[in-house]
């Protein structure tokens, strides 16, 4: 009978499920589903997964060692998506990688349905993460913290840690994900950390410095001056910078996120 492993939607839950499934069902037909979204089917055996950090560490190593660094990041990115089949697809990639001569090249095997799925998810997440590297806007709060808030579709926060950590090593900064209520925190000269489950004090994030107001104003002025009226092209602008990003960007906020001029 086909075994289906049930886990929570967290990274830890998925890694634990991968661990259990790999341990006892790697040679059989099996799958992974989420406890809260699963649709029960006939002729399946459902197994609840016990979450454990150590399981995660083991799976992490397993993937890095056998599939290589590049495939590891592909899989990691795919798991940051909100797709209900993401854990299942990754498990099948792990299974199918054993049948390939060089397992490290499994992600090139795009004709394989599971690989195709993981590839598609990874592309979606990595693209969104990249767009936020572009469109994140920090504001200087009283006390000198650079603060930014975003509303991403996927859990992309961890994709920014190294980028901004390297870029602003001497700053205290924080990026808050309004969709998933998580925050990425960086203290000057220290590594970044991810915090979840904490409530944000919204009052505090509105108190900006005087200098902040001045530079926000300068930026808006620059942004308007730089466009060439004769080449005005709102649909091209929309293609590159979709409307849903604009609510968190200061150059659009006073225009209702539509257009400038």
């Amino acid at each position: 009978m086909r075994k289906v492993y049930l886990c929570g939607q967290t990274m830890n839950g998925i890694y634990s499920a991968l661990y259990d499934a790999w341990k006892s069902s790697r040679d059989e037909e099996a799958g992974i589903a989420f406890t809260d979204t699963v649709e029960h089917q006939l002729f399946c055996e459902y197994v609840e997964v016990v979450e454990d950090r150590r399981k995660g560490v083991a799976v992490d190593k397993l993937i890095r060692d056998h599939l290589g660094e590049k495939a590891y990041w592909d899989i990691y990115h795919a798991l940051l998506s909100e797709d209900a089949k993401r854990a299942d697809a990754v498990f099948h990639v792990l299974q199918d990688a054993r049948a390939v001569k060089d397992s490290k090249r499994i992600m090139e095997h795009l004709t394989n349905p599971a690989v195709g799925k993981v590839f598609e998810l990874k592309r979606r997440v990595a693209n969104e993460a990249h767009l936020f590297l572009e469109f994140i806007r920090f504001r200087e709060l009283e006390g000198g913290v650079m603060f930014s808030e975003i509303s991403p579709r996927n859990r992309v926060l961890t994709c920014f840690g190294d980028h901004f950590g390297n870029r602003f090593p001497l700053e205290n900064w924080m990026i808050y994900d309004k969709t998933h209520k998580e925050a990425l925190l960086h203290r000057a000269r220290a590594p970044w950390i991810l915090i979840s489950g904490e409530e944000l004090d919204e009052e505090l994030t509105k108190r900006v410095t005087e200098r902040e107001k001045e530079f926000a104003c300068l930026w808006r002025g620059f942004f308007q001056a730089i466009a060439i009226e004769e080449r005005r092209n709102p649909s091209c602008q929309r293609t590159h910078l979709p409307l849903h990003f604009r609510k968190d960007m200061l150059e659009f906020d006073d225009m209702g996120g539509v257009e400038v001029f």
């Binding site: 590297l133 572009e134 469109f135 390297n166 870029r167 602003f168 090593p169 001497l170 700053e171 942004f223 308007q224 730089i226 466009a227 060439i228 009226e229 080449r231 005005r232 092209n233 709102p234 649909s235 091209c236 602008q237 293609t239 590159h240 910078l241 960007m249 150059e251 257009e259 400038v260 001029f261």
Partner: peptide, 20 residues
């Protein structure tokens, strides 16, 4: 020790009303 880094692919930060 300072501020900033560079990415080979380049990063756009906004798009003006002319789409550039």
């Amino acid at each position: 020790t300072g501020i900033g880094n560079c990415h080979a692919a380049g990063i756009c930060h906004s798009f003006a009303a002319d789409g550039r």
